[in-house]
Simulated scan of single mutants.
Amino acid sequence: MPIQHLKLYHYPASRSARTKWMLHEVVGDAFDVEKVDLYGAVQYSPEFLRLNPNHSVPVLEITWDDGTVQYMLESAAMVAFLADAFPDADLAPSPDASPERADYLQMLHFGSTWMDMTLWQIRAHEHVLPEAERDPRMVARYRKKFSEEIEPQLAARLERAPFVCGQKFTAADCIVGQTVLWARGYGLCRAEVFKRYMSLVSKRPAFGAAFSDLREFVLDATQQPLSARFTG
């Protein structure tokens, strides 16, 4: 069933940026964006909770050609879906079973789970939770885990090839590239191999479009309405 229209509920430099990047890769600017004021805790409003009971972005609204409206809530699922929905963009191996497809899916989900989970614990305990609820031991543990377990795996791949799945840019780079950018903002992924990787992916026009609102991002959320409503 062909897609009639796409709309992204988004906040700058959040997980929705990876979906925004992917949308620019496959449809250019032919989609709508609605900014969700996460720091103002709009995501906890009854209106938004009807879209996403997980009170987060991204939300991808898909209007199909028959007028049916569907909402996707998981960023990795959105990125994988868009890659397969727009095969002419050539951003994913064929859905047929193959070593290339298996590796691509592994890295796409590695970025959105293992990397993301570790970085989110660091961010939550450094810049989102109220001071009394932060755990410095948690931060130290996950910083160590990221630098000693995650970075070496990525670095080994990027020493062998320019992109995470080899010689070609894929949708997996929209996930991993966004998480590497996030990590670098927290003093991680500082080795030359990551600098080279980010220099390469940031030259893509879709990257520039996706992160054109980066300056709107505010690091510390503790003085915002979000802090009183935050549940993780």
Rank of each mutant, 00 (worst) to 15 (best):
L188Y: 01
L73K: 15
E149P: 03
G232N: 11
M115I: 11
D173E: 09
S199Y: 04
R157Q: 10
P152A: 09
F217P: 01
L6A: 09
H127L: 09
A228I: 02
D37K: 13
E148L: 06
E133L: 15
A17G: 06
D220P: 02
V201E: 00
M138C: 15
L200H: 06
A156F: 09
D84K: 09
V69S: 06
F211Y: 15
V59A: 10
A80N: 14
F86S: 07
T118V: 10
R18I: 05
E25Q: 11
W182G: 01
R215I: 00
H10S: 04
P225A: 13
D116Q: 14
E25M: 03
L8N: 00
V42T: 13
I62G: 06
H55G: 03
D32I: 02
S147G: 08
Q178R: 04
A191C: 02
P99K: 07
V79P: 01
W64A: 08
S16G: 09
I62C: 07
A172T: 10
K20R: 15
R15T: 06
P152Q: 12
V69R: 14
P93N: 06
A41T: 09
L129S: 10
A228Q: 15
Y11F: 08
D96Q: 15
T68H: 15
V164F: 09
W64N: 05
F110A: 08
K35T: 15
H24G: 08
G208L: 04
L73D: 08
L91F: 02
T19W: 00
S14A: 12
F86L: 06
L91A: 10
D213N: 07
E131S: 05
Y9W: 10
S147N: 09
L23M: 01
S98M: 01
V139T: 13
D135R: 12
A83T: 05
K195V: 00
F194M: 03
V26K: 04
Y186A: 11
P46S: 13
R18Q: 12
D32L: 05
R15L: 09
V36Y: 01
G185E: 14
P152R: 14
P152E: 12
L119M: 14
E159T: 03
A92F: 02
E61T: 11
L108F: 06
F207R: 05
D90W: 02
V33D: 06
R196L: 05
Y142W: 10
F194K: 03
L200I: 10
P205G: 11
H127S: 14
R15P: 04
R143E: 03
F110H: 06
T113F: 01
E131C: 11
Y71M: 06
